[in-house]
Simulated assay, not measured.
Amino acid sequence: MTDPHVIAFYDRHPISADQILAKVGGAPSGAADLWPHDQDHYGGLEANAALAQRAAIGPGTRVLDLCAGLCGPARHNAATLGCSVVALELNAQRASGARRLNALVGFDRRIAVVQGDATRPPFGDGAFDVVWSQEAFLHIADKTGLLAGARRVLKPGGRLAFTDWTAGPALTDADRRLMDEGIAAKAIHSPAEYEGLLTGAGFAEIRREDLSAAWRSILQARLEMYRHLRDEAQRATGADPHADYVRFYERFVALVAGGALGGARFVAVA
């Protein structure tokens, strides 16, 4: 079921197609011009490369990017690895923004953007070699439906590769409410809970890597970026549209620094 809070969160997200194009002067000459600005996940291009290597993505690999957003990773993977990508995105504005960016850099025929629900992927059984996602599954309460759908559309031996925020022992119910209010985090699981969910969905050979330490510094840098975007907006309009977002991120940083939240990379075989 579509959650209006998740939709609204991405409708007002400070990273948008317009914001990316403003950073490149409005006329990108190719996909690489967008890469410094369109990677809306932790770790940028290095994180893409690490996840792609573990998922064994290469020329001809059929990839389903779940919760693909503005397609930054999809464009990078298609350009550098030669894979084909279908990008499934729930939010209409972000799906439209992804298509716009793809067309501007000549990727509209290389990446198919589909608006839809990740818990009910509208594709045939065994259609993909890899299902991929980065820091998006926390927005989805129905992990059973999400992982069952991912398992169904993967061919036998296909790989589910994703990164996500995970719960530490110190994460309280109040912290979970804060995360939901701040970034529409509908369900944050401990690493062990995630592994149990993956096993229950029929996945095997589950590998997990702890990314918490690396994400702490990245999150702090992202906070500074959002503060800069807030300041830019204030200078341009006199308004402060990102004030609540910045206040939330300050608390977010504190939770990660205190170990209540962590990050992990998962790869599992269908």
Rank of each mutant, 00 (worst) to 15 (best):
184 A>G: 07
172 T>G: 00
137 F>R: 03
168 G>T: 02
233 A>C: 09
157 G>W: 08
121 P>F: 03
189 H>S: 08
247 R>F: 04
157 G>I: 13
161 A>C: 04
194 Y>R: 01
121 P>I: 02
212 S>E: 08
143 K>W: 04
248 F>I: 08
223 L>C: 00
210 D>V: 00
113 V>W: 08
199 T>L: 12
163 T>A: 03
138 L>N: 12
147 L>N: 01
209 E>I: 11
121 P>W: 03
123 F>W: 01
212 S>Y: 09
208 R>Q: 03
174 A>N: 12
226 Y>N: 14
232 E>F: 07
213 A>I: 10
188 I>A: 07
166 T>S: 01
194 Y>K: 03
193 E>P: 01
117 D>Q: 00
140 I>T: 14
112 A>G: 10
184 A>R: 06
214 A>L: 12
145 G>Y: 04
194 Y>L: 06
171 L>F: 13
244 D>T: 15
192 A>R: 14
196 G>C: 12
205 E>M: 11
183 I>F: 13
190 S>M: 00
242 H>C: 11
112 A>L: 15
161 A>V: 02
216 R>C: 14
203 F>P: 01
155 K>L: 02
205 E>T: 10
131 V>M: 06
218 I>Y: 05
127 A>Q: 03
206 I>R: 03
186 K>L: 13
236 A>C: 12
146 L>V: 01
175 D>F: 11
209 E>V: 10
121 P>T: 01
113 V>F: 10
148 A>D: 07
210 D>S: 00
208 R>F: 01
164 D>H: 08
132 W>M: 01
196 G>K: 13
242 H>Q: 15
135 E>L: 09
184 A>K: 06
218 I>S: 05
116 G>I: 07
187 A>D: 06
200 G>S: 11
222 R>G: 02
115 Q>F: 05
118 A>S: 11
179 M>D: 14
250 E>N: 13
180 D>M: 13
120 R>E: 06
250 E>V: 12
217 S>W: 08
182 G>N: 01
145 G>E: 00
213 A>D: 15
237 T>E: 04
224 E>Q: 15
137 F>C: 06
188 I>K: 03
201 A>M: 08
243 A>L: 04
162 F>A: 05
125 D>W: 14
226 Y>W: 14
243 A>G: 08
135 E>V: 13
201 A>K: 04
137 F>W: 00
245 Y>V: 13
120 R>N: 10
229 L>D: 02
223 L>W: 02
178 L>E: 12
123 F>Q: 05
176 R>G: 10
245 Y>F: 14
139 H>R: 05
221 A>G: 04
238 G>K: 03
216 R>S: 12
186 K>A: 14
206 I>V: 11
169 P>S: 09
124 G>T: 15
140 I>C: 07
122 P>T: 10
156 P>W: 03
128 F>G: 03
168 G>I: 06
186 K>T: 09
124 G>K: 09
144 T>C: 08
231 D>F: 00
137 F>A: 09
113 V>H: 09
127 A>K: 06
195 E>C: 11
207 R>Y: 06
246 V>S: 00
201 A>Y: 02
223 L>K: 03
223 L>P: 01
145 G>R: 04
232 E>D: 14
198 L>D: 00
157 G>R: 11
112 A>M: 10
155 K>W: 02
132 W>S: 02
187 A>G: 05
227 R>A: 13
200 G>A: 14
184 A>T: 01
116 G>A: 09
211 L>K: 02
181 E>K: 10
